[in-house]
Amino acid sequence: MHDHIHHHPHPNQPDEEDGPFTEYRLLEMALRELLIEKEVITQAELHKTYQMMDDRGPHNGARMVAKAWSDPVYLDLMRRDATEAAKSIGLEPTWLNLIALENTDAVHNVVVCTLCSCYPWPLLGLPPDWYKSRAYRSDVVQNPRKVLAEFGTILPETTEVRVHDSSADMRYLVVPKRPEGTENWSEENLAKLVTRDSMIGVVPALAIETL
């Protein structure tokens, strides 16, 4: 099964120390150590921040969506105050003013930031490159049905397409429609159907056959 015989060494992935020691790295180290020495911040606080940054990702948004699908009380909280809904399950998007947008047969929501790339980082992680591209940002506000079709999402005329330009202080999380055939599913399994792109609103949640 393994016809690639290992007589020759493969290059290892470089260790952090193998890269150049740049001025910026030196600056960061000096600043960090000074801030700790002068008791402006603590090592523990820094560590907590690293962890928080590493925890950002679409698994957080997916948890919220799966809970909203399963729990009508939570869905109601999402509708009234999505930031509070995030906090109530232990997510701490402290700087986020969140609005949840529910996709239904009547309305399909899709999010863009035409001015830059505003995006709910704590809940979705870093935005994909296409979200920041001029093509997406200018096309989706002018011809959203065409852009959605490029993502494979073809909507009937009877569904209102609602584009949300995240132009100032609010951040948006689309709650896609709950896929068919998931009536008795646990929140944990439901969350597996909720993709990043479905929470931006360019595609539906995964169908159960795809799992």
Partner: peptide, 19 residues
């Protein structure tokens, strides 16, 4: 949408919300 883009190609009830 039809007010923003007079030649908007989508449905008449499509909308955009902006802050």
């Amino acid at each position: 949408m039809r007010q923003i883009w007079p030649d908007y190609a989508g449905a008449a009830h499509d909308t955009l919300e902006v802050e």
